[in-house]
Design a protein around this nucleic acid. Structure first.
Lengths: 156, 156
DNA sequence: TATTGTTATACTCTATAACTATA
DNA sequence: TATAGTTATAGAGTATAACAATA
């Protein structure tokens, strides 16, 4: 996957930085008992009343992945499923008091990891990095080429 | 995984750009019948005589992953395993003529994908991006925190 | 004893398909 | 008919363990 260290290219640099940062983040969040997905759901659920489907959309997760993420949050006593008052099919993910406290802590953890990385660079470099990445995300790299869906046998 | 679009952070930007670029690269290489791993092995194998273990090290792959990658290269007629003259356990991965031609083509494909991305930015942005990423890779993000190894039952 | 390459397969992750209940 | 959430499980990807040949 990685090219030789002599000729680092954009793919190598992005893969490497995102992988290492993701690893750091996972380790930092694990110290307070969270995964990145749990953190993501916490911070979006605390903003306003949201259903599982809405939280899945925001976090770019499959609804089945959201099920296990919410299971984990419930098991940790951080959130609970409540029936929506407007749609009896839907579940609002409501944070417990412990969950709200955890949402604040985990955001501090995330910010800390980011500050440590960006703070290791000269200020202009850090600013330029964010600007360039943002321009790529908004522009040339905004849309992933979609892979053809995988065919699959019916159950049983 | 992704934060809300209103407050893009470093994690989101790196994950997103690396993921989309990786997708683009995979699609571009697939058009000439290669995976990213096959390309990686081709370009390192063409430089000098290298064994599977050396190529695995350079590409940061497990040796078992290297086996299936070399299998694919052989099946495509791009490379062949030759006994090393100095160590009868080791196999030199030698490119065929077709493999050498493919190595050149695939490097062009890779360079093209990178040029397209970097070329979409103002020149100073592109330069600053590479410099900042390189500084992170050489510095603060040089070493991933290692995850504890997964315990596993013995075979049978 | 240690290492190269191989095979077999255990494990994780993710997402599809099918289902229930509602809309 | 379509959608929210759930369950079960298929499939891809990866890496561990064990092994044979050689160092």
């Amino acid at each position: 996957m990685a090219p030789s260290r002599a000729e680092p290219d954009l793919s190598f640099l992005l893969d490497r930085t995102s992988h290492v940062l993701r690893t750091r983040m996972a380790a930092a969040l694990a110290e307070i008992g969270l995964t990145a997905r749990m953190h993501c759901v916490l911070v979006h659920a605390i903003e306003e009343e949201r259903t599982q489907a809405q939280l899945a959309e925001l976090g770019d997760m499959d609804k089945t992945t959201m099920v296990v993420t919410v299971d984990a949050l419930e098991e940790a006593g951080l959130a609970e499923r409540r029936p929506s008052s407007v749609d009896r099919r839907a579940r609002i993910i409501a944070l417990t008091e412990k969950g709200r406290e955890m949402a604040r802590r985990s955001q501090e953890v995330v910010d800390g990891v980011h500050r440590a990385a960006l703070g290791s660079l000269p200020a202009e470099d850090a600013k330029a990095l964010l600007q360039a990445l943002d321009r790529l995300v908004e522009g040339h790299l905004s849309t992933p080429v979609e892979a053809p869906p995988v065919a699959r046998r019916a159950r049983q």
